[in-house]
Write a protein that binds this DNA or RNA. Structure first.
Lengths: 334, 334
DNA sequence: CTGAAAGCGCTAACAG
DNA sequence: CTGTTAGCGCTTTCAG
């Protein structure tokens, strides 16, 4: 690989001049600049980013640490981040923590070691990786999940309100025993959505019953298992609020396997859309989140944070929207 | 951020010794090593990977450049890569080229500039980015798509055979006019799958008709549009082979909107599964690919290539499997 | 406007 | 077994 010295020699200038041309810094005599560019082309010169980063002690990379690459929620969000990042001159590297605090820790280590210019992270569990980034003065934005005790920019949706809307919709559609499959205990979004579910019940004079609540893993399998376990005890629930998209899918699978008719015997509303919610039969009623916008917003906050490390942390909360489809609309009494 | 010198000073040893302890190299007196470890802990020392990479002139990062992060095919594949990479001591950074040769080029540039230890790439279009990597002596594995003229390790599925199976299945199910939505012209997988479709027709004494073939973009919208355009001319096709998963979904959407009954009026088989193919009504018959295994295989080849840059390039081809569900099984004559 | 030179933080010969 | 030292390739003062 040609270095800056090779180019300098060939163009008969100093490495400093090559550097100036390569970076468009300062004014360089057009004749020299031309010679340099020729030399660069002839040698297929490509600046070594590692050396540059070391010298500048910063990089132009963002790490985006998400907790499930298989979830369309996160992939859509990443698209939003990417689009904004690109415009701001950053490249995005994606890290998939798989909801595993250990993996998350490794990626945080890597981001630190690689001197990433910034990190966008959806923190899994209660581990304190966020603060390690903050302590190291790495610009960081938390996304989708808030962490108590961490003083960082955060982008959220109004989880409680979304869950409240979903549950209220089920109540108003005439369902009587509304169950809930929540997420992993301690995960922010799970807690908030459960709270919204509970508040909706209570405000409508319905009891909140522990035995109608299960905790899933935010994956399809977890939704399936939780639904199965809800079907055992009698009286059965006649509706379900599932706290994320993949678990909704799992729950519906379980209902199909158990030959329970949706929406007549069981109404279903899920939190977070999937791109194909309308293709499933019955199509799924969901609480749609502005996923792409969440990503854009996070990227925007990160650029601001990088520009001004001292600015006070802000939290942006975006609204959800209830997308009513067929899975929550009874056609006849079961 | 503490440097290796800070640690050395505090532990009263040389930086070299700290480096040895940090990397587990050579033998270090246990007492010294202990002092060093204490100092590292006290100073929250974290080796600067950028400096290390510069010095070693290599990194421990793999770039995985995929063409659509929204496609479950690629996310599943990435999981396979990640799992193997982690075991081999590499970290994976994901780059989403969005089927756009320009973006792909930028990521290849970045991989080169950042001195990535290796690259796994599903090349979009005919651009010659693969060879730039090869010329720069960066270990590289092509995945999902073969590029003529590129002398690199490659992991594929038997696209032609899969398409042949799918089309034959439609013929044997009694469909008469079988259309095909292929992928972008020039994309390897599209070409091969189209060839399999054609071969199946011809071997069963059916004519191959240009007007039954469309080219989509491998996305949902493309599948929708292609299906719509197939519905215009009469006589209409009565079956469809769609050359990838998302286009299958789009095509089915179009059929739903057009109130054309699947599978009775239109049989549908797609290439590549989606995790929720069985949830759609009717459930989708697909050619399932071993996506996770593709990723594992690619990662395996990459480690071998890194270990021995001179070994002759190999191509691994994995088999597909026809997953028969409801969308291709006529219950009555239309 | 251009060049010389120092140094980012780390590792790997090489000496001791 | 440990320390000294010379860079990895680049950018950025500082002189000229």
């Amino acid at each position: 690989m040609a270095t800056i010295y090779d180019v300098a020699r060939r163009a008969e200038v100093s490495p400093a001049t090559v550097s100036r041309v390569a970076n468009g810094h300062a004014n360089v005599d057009p004749a020299l600049a031309e010679r340099v560019r020729d030399a660069m082309r002839e040698l297929h010169y490509r600046p070594n980013a590692v050396a540059r980063n070391l010298r500048r002690s910063r990089t132009t990379l963002w790490a985006v640490i998400i907790s499930d690459i298989g979830n369309p929620f996160f992939t859509s969000l990443v698209r939003g981040v990417e689009d904004v990042a690109q415009r701001a001159g950053y490249s995005v590297v994606l890290c998939n923590s798989d909801e595993d605090p250990t993996k998350e820790g490794q990626y945080v280590d890597a981001a630190l070691a690689e001197q990433m210019a910034g990190v966008i992270i959806s923190p899994a569990g209660m581990a304190n990786h966020l603060n390690r980034l903050v302590d190291a003065r790495v610009p960081v934005v938390a996304i989708d999940r808030q962490q108590s005790g961490a003083h960082v920019d955060t982008v959220l949706v109004d989880n409680e309100q979304g869950a409240y809307l979903a549950t209220t919709h089920l109540i108003e559609s005439g369902y009587q025993r509304i169950a809930c499959v929540s997420g992993p205990p301690g995960v922010f979004t799970a807690t908030r959505r459960l709270r919204g579910y509970r508040r909706a019940l209570e405000e409508h004079g319905r009891p909140y019953e522990e035995e109608l609540v299960r905790h899933g893993d935010f994956r399809e399998e977890g939704g399936y298992r939780a639904m199965a376990s809800l079907l055992g005890p009698r009286p059965r629930p006649d509706a379900l609020f599932a706290a994320n998209n993949l678990m909704t899918v799992g729950a519906v699978e379980c209902l199909v396997d158990s030959r329970i008719a949706v929406p007549d015997e069981m109404g279903v509303v899920g939190f977070d859309d999937v791109p194909w919610a309308h293709l499933v039969r019955p199509s799924l009623t969901t609480v749609a989140q502005p996923t792409y916008e969440l990503g854009c917003e996070a990227a925007g906050l990160l650029t601001k944070r990088i520009a001004d490390p001292e600015r006070p942390p802000t939290t942006v909360t975006l609204e959800t929207k209830l997308q009513i489809r067929d899975s929550s609309l009874r056609t006849r009494q079961a």
